[in-house]
Amino acid sequence: MGLPLLLPLLLLLLLLLLLLPPASLQGDHWAQPKALFHFGMNQQKQLSAPEGGSIRIPFSFDYSQDSGSVSNVKISWRWKHFHGDFIYKTTPRLIHKNFKNRLLLNWEEDMKNGSLQISNLRREDEGSYFCQVEMITEKYGEQKWQSIQGTELTITHAAKTATPGPTTSASTAATTAADLWDLEGKRSSGSWLLNKEAVVRLALPSAVLKIAILGLMVFLRWKRSKEDPSRIWRRNTRTLGTKNDGILYAPLTLHNVPSPAAPPCPPAHGGPQEETLFSALKT
């Protein structure tokens, strides 16, 4: 066969090779590109809580919707860094000795979010916390992924209540009381009104008592001014003086009582209205 005949045959063979599908040239595992499993993990970047308090570190995750049925879901937490020690595992159950009786996972297997609660926080609990998810999918088999950034937890000092020292002087006590009263007044107008009402309630009985005593004194003075002069004379005559050498002294008070028979005479200018005489009786 000459060269002019081989050239067309080679061209025809090359054309047939180009027209054949790739699946006929390669195995079935190269026929379709391998599917990829998509996943995601979300955690808050930073959190802070006071020493002795508690904190919840939230998390959420997602995965490919075409994964099929999912089973054997496990949640784990690492501490300090991405490859740090595990402090919590759902299966098998594990709690780090530094967090004994202080960890609680708020999560259920059919949920894609939850939180890790840490109670009775200590200064050494500071650091980064990383959530890890592990599951078995129907399409992609066993899958495991973890947050890269994690959550940075900061522990703050607990606030201390200052205890005031003893009062050194009366003026200092008065100033402190005035300051507290002023603060209370600024804090709540209702408290100020209550204080005023209490003061009025305390002062009212005292004022009523004073008014009653004053009224009684005025009434007695008025009644005495209206008393019959003869009664005054009889009462004064019953008052005896001091007995000395068998003689009794009795003070007599004479009043200028107007006579019904004669018009009253005006008293002498500057003269006394009444005068007291002593009568001596020999016993």
Rank of each mutant, 00 (worst) to 15 (best):
L3D: 14
P8N: 03
L10V: 09
L10W: 05
L10D: 01
L10G: 13
L12Y: 11
L13Y: 08
L17Y: 08
L19A: 15
L20N: 04
P21A: 13
D28L: 13
H29D: 14
K34W: 07
F37D: 03
F39H: 13
Q43K: 02
Q46N: 13
Q46K: 15
L47I: 03
A49Y: 01
P50L: 10
G53K: 03
I55K: 00
F59L: 04
S60Q: 05
Q65N: 07
D66N: 13
G68Q: 04
V70R: 00
V70F: 02
V70G: 01
I75M: 02
W79Y: 15
K80L: 08
K80I: 04
F82G: 02
H83Q: 14
N101P: 03
N101L: 09
R102F: 06
N113H: 11
Q117K: 13
I118L: 14
I118W: 05
S119V: 10
R123T: 08
E124T: 13
Y129S: 03
Y129E: 01
T137P: 02
Q146K: 05
Q146F: 03
T151A: 04
A162N: 07
P166I: 03
T168R: 12
S171D: 14
T172G: 06
T172D: 09
A174G: 05
T175I: 11
T175C: 06
A177S: 13
D182W: 06
D182C: 00
L183Q: 12
E184H: 10
E184K: 12
S189M: 07
G190K: 13
L193R: 15
A198Y: 00
V199R: 11
P205S: 10
I213N: 11
L214T: 15
V218M: 12
K223Y: 02
R224E: 14
K226R: 15
S230D: 07
I232H: 07
I232N: 04
I232E: 05
W233K: 14
R234G: 01
N236Q: 09
N236R: 06
L240M: 07
T242D: 11
K243L: 14
N244T: 10
G246C: 10
I247D: 03
L248N: 08
L252S: 12
L254H: 15
S259M: 09
A262E: 04
P263H: 07
A268P: 00
A268W: 04
P272K: 11
P272R: 11
F278M: 06
L281C: 07
K282M: 05
T283Q: 10
